[in-house]
């Protein structure tokens, strides 16, 4: 143990190359002046630069296509959207609805965990194949260890209707022919011919497309964090504009008690 806290040297001393606000003068992001060097960027290009430090109209456009096509279904039955819809029906605020929906989007069966996990999987798969392992053995090992492979299989429905339009969009801007997207389809082919019959879902497609553009799992995760809000917000607005409490009300008999029905008396 030390005699002094390691924190002392950080006291009132935060040094960063990420950027900051110079009051009354300028704003810097990763060394660039926001008002004079980044002012012509689209918001998605700005976000890409903020998250990764990369300037690429193509990647920003690809990401924007993913946001539109893949992430924002305005359906209040989808769990993250339902949170916003519940906020609307309970007359909470739009920002609180969005904050809760974004947080809930960090889910296992959809959203951000599969996005990060699928990107991580494709990079590991690519490395293992380079080292001489077969695709089949890597996938089997992943299944054995985790009982799932991020990006394959889907709740409610196996086939993913987003894949075709997403791939069409990707090809229209010159993406969709890289090493990782080919691997993604090869993994799907493995699953289709296995007893699991999993189909690829959109997380695998987006992860592979972005891996082909050199984005890391964390890059994709950070870029995608807000992607789902365009689905949540209309659900909030819709519920807010309808009568209070009208969203999928639950009558008492919808509670299915599965515990011991014996009534007990509290004893202090």
């Amino acid at each position: 143990m030390t005699d002094h806290s390691k924190l002392e040297k950080y006291e009132d001393n935060w040094q960063t190359s990420m950027g900051g606000w110079f009051p009354g003068e300028k704003v810097l992001l990763r060394g660039k002046n926001v008002f004079t060097e980044l002012n012509q960027k689209s918001w998605m290009e700005y976000l890409l630069f903020a998250v990764t430090g990369r300037e690429s109209e193509k990647i920003a456009r690809l990401m924007e296509g993913m946001w539109v096509i893949c992430t924002s279904f305005p359906d209040p039955r989808i769990w993250n959207n339902r949170v916003s819809a519940l906020a609307g029906t309970a007359r909470s605020t739009g920002a609180l609805a969005a904050a809760a929906s974004v947080a809930v989007t960090e889910a296992t069966i959809f959203g951000l965990k599969p996005i990060k996990g699928a990107t991580d999987f494709f990079y590991r798969l690519g490395d293992c194949i380079e080292q001489g392992q077969s695709l089949e053995s890597v996938v089997r090992s992943e299944l054995k260890q985790h009982r799932s492979v991020f990006g394959y299989g889907r709740p409610l429905i196996n086939e993913d209707e987003r894949i075709a339009p997403m791939m069409d969009f990707a090809r229209s801007i010159g993406c969709g022919n890289g090493r990782y997207i080919k691997l993604a389809y090869e993994v799907e082919n493995f699953f289709i011919h296995s007893r699991l019959k999993y189909r690829m879902n959109i997380a695998a497609v987006c992860a592979a497309l972005l891996a082909d553009e050199g984005l890391t799992p964390s890059d994709f995760y950070h870029m995608a964090t807000l992607a789902f809000t365009a689905g949540a917000m209309p659900c909030f607005i819709d519920a807010e504009s309808q009568p209070e409490g009208a969203l999928f009300p639950l009558r008492v008999s919808r509670i299915h008690f599965v515990g011991d029905r014996q009534t007990r008396q509290w004893r202090n």
Partner: peptide, 23 residues
């Protein structure tokens, strides 16, 4: 037509006679 329910071991309710949406 409504068959979806919330299963729970924690909580049980009975309804008010005049309102199926109030416990």
């Amino acid at each position: 037509a409504i068959s979806e329910t919330i299963s729970t071991k924690i909580w049980d309710e009975s309804a008010e006679p005049d309102n199926p949406f109030a416990a």
